[in-house]
Simulated scan of single mutants.
Amino acid sequence: ITGIHVQPNKAIVGANAFSHSSGIHQDGVLKHRETYEIMRAEDVGWNANKLTLGKLSGRNAFRTRLKELGIELESEDLLNAAFARFKNLADKKSEIFDEDLHALVSDEFISEAAECFKLVYLQVASITGEVPHAIITVSENGIEKRAEADGGGPVDAAFKAIEKMVNSGAELQLYSVNNITSGTDAQGEVTVRLAKGGRIVNGQGADTDIVIASVKAYLNALNKIQSKSERAHPQV
């Protein structure tokens, strides 16, 4: 009516009035709402309270949100691994969205597959007027290997450094980048398609750093090429 927006931190009617970001508060509200809320959000015009996932969130809030999204992890080990990835991401961005959770869990299932190659360390330099350079360390079946290379850009340099180590002979057919969430701290999701010996595989990787996401996707595709159980052609 007045055209004046209500401040988010305004008591009772502000957007953050029924929002919980602390792991202790989230766990308490999930177990017994009245622990931290003396009134219901619905009674003052809100649809429900809100658990904001971030670096302070705990395992219970993480597990609950996954269930609300219809995601059921088969074992406690999978949940623990996904939660560890969640905490790492939460240290990099202020708020975790549902799209981030889908990407985290998808990445976790990917990592559960047989992994011959794992990223250990990556350093890239892209300076105006100079050739981009990448230094990378990859674990191949538990043995760490290091290589460096120049390229047309930081991603190209990183891919060339990987090939110096693994010499896969695979042909890069597709490189695609999509943002999972909005904002400058959004996660980027990279898809890489490699072809070798009549086999075509898609690799995916997600990270707030697009170069790291690209390397994850490339290594994921290489792991699929190594896997004898991979189908001859991916669903595209």
Rank of each mutant, 00 (worst) to 15 (best):
S22C: 14
Y36V: 12
L30Y: 02
Y36H: 08
K50T: 14
G45V: 04
E37H: 03
T52D: 12
I38Y: 05
N47L: 13
T52S: 13
G54P: 02
T35S: 13
K50E: 11
K31G: 12
A11L: 10
V13F: 07
N16C: 10
N16S: 12
K10W: 00
D43W: 01
D27Q: 11
G58D: 08
V13H: 07
D43F: 01
L30A: 06
Q26P: 07
V29W: 00
A17H: 02
Y36S: 08
M39Y: 04
A17C: 06
N49F: 10
E37V: 03
H32N: 10
A11M: 07
I24T: 15
K55Y: 07
R40I: 08
Q26N: 09
D27Y: 04
Y36F: 12
P8C: 00
E42G: 02
H25A: 15
T52K: 12
G58R: 02
L51C: 05
L51E: 06
L30M: 10
V13S: 11
S57I: 04
Q7G: 03
G58V: 07
T52M: 13
G14P: 01
K31E: 11
I12Y: 03
N49K: 06
A48M: 06
K55L: 10
Q26M: 07
S21N: 13
L53T: 05
Q7W: 01
F18D: 11
A17Q: 01
I38W: 06
A48R: 11
L56C: 08
K31N: 13
N49G: 13
T35C: 04
S22W: 10
N47W: 07
R33D: 05
N16I: 09
H25Q: 13
G54N: 14
L30G: 05
F18G: 13
E37R: 02
S22Q: 15
I38P: 09
N47Q: 14
F18N: 09
G45M: 05
A41I: 03
G28T: 09
G54W: 00
P8L: 00
G58A: 04
N9W: 00
G28Q: 09
K31C: 05
V6L: 01
S21K: 14
W46R: 14
K10D: 03
A48I: 06
L30I: 09
L53H: 02
E37I: 03
Q7S: 07
T52Q: 12
K55H: 11
A17T: 03
V6N: 00
I38G: 07
H20S: 13
E34Q: 09
L30D: 03
S19N: 15
L30Q: 03
Q7N: 07
I12N: 08
S19V: 15
G23N: 09
G28A: 12
